[in-house]
Design a binder for these strands. Structure first.
Lengths: 126, 126
DNA sequence: TGGATAATAATAACTGATAGCGATAAATTG
DNA sequence: CAATTTATCGCTATCAGTTATTATTATCCA
């Protein structure tokens, strides 16, 4: 297996992602990264996000439209997407989970799940 | 509000989508549609899928990578994605549902949800 | 049936992401 | 510590999927 190196670029990408809970896009990470490594390229950001994904250090969130978003928390957890402001929130990791009965109703062997809610966040409700 | 017309193309796209439970891609629908309207264009398929989505007649399923898939059943239901063969299955609509407790744990007002399981389907397990 | 206009077919343009390339720098070897 | 290997770099071109544009055609209501 190909050995992986920790580079300044990779470290910065990972640090930026871990220092926020906003589930940013690659573009946003790129903008932030340029503040610390002005010559970094968008391709490098994408490449390192891919490597971090392979190492299961981070999670990728796709919402079909637009860009992927990334999450520095690799532990399984649910997300709430505000349809008004677009922000993505985490469900509390110590909150309730989808029941076993739902999983056993699946037409096959379940290896992982994805659960998301869409609606209006508390900020936008006020 | 702009009035919408029912065209041969739109009807065919909808009929094709409703006549299968394979959650096809726009490309597949296009191939099928050409059997009935040889001169139909891919753009028209995409456009009509968009219109049907707006009318909430169908559902779009994105899995990030690759093409979107479409579902002629607009009622809320869960999906199971086989990671081996790529097929997408429906959960039984009379099966168990994600508990209310999970929904009330959301950081906002929930309007819709998405729940998917990934794993190996029964066909591929044999 | 006629006319306004929504929808079409064809094709070009767009977007997010990836691949290829020569250059660079980190690891390894002697 | 120098030489060599090779992973990663920045850059650019490319790709796939989708959407926008445009001239033409078809729908629908009076």
């Amino acid at each position: 297996m190909k050995q992986k190196r920790m580079t300044k670029q990779k470290a910065v990408v990972y640090e930026i992602l871990c220092s926020t809970d906003t589930h940013p896009t690659a573009d946003w990470i790129y903008e932030q990264a340029r503040k610390r490594i002005p010559e970094i390229s968008l391709g490098t950001v994408y490449r390192n996000l891919q490597v971090l994904l392979e190492d299961k250090k981070i999670i990728e969130l796709n919402y079909g439209k637009g860009q992927s978003r990334f999450d520095g928390n690799p532990n399984p957890h649910y997300h709430f997407v505000c349809e008004k402001c677009g922000r993505i929130y985490d469900f509390a990791q110590d909150g309730p989970w989808v029941g076993e009965d739902v999983l056993t109703a699946a037409p096959g062997m379940v290896k992982s799940c994805r659960f998301e809610c869409y609606g209006i966040c508390r900020d936008c409700l006020d």
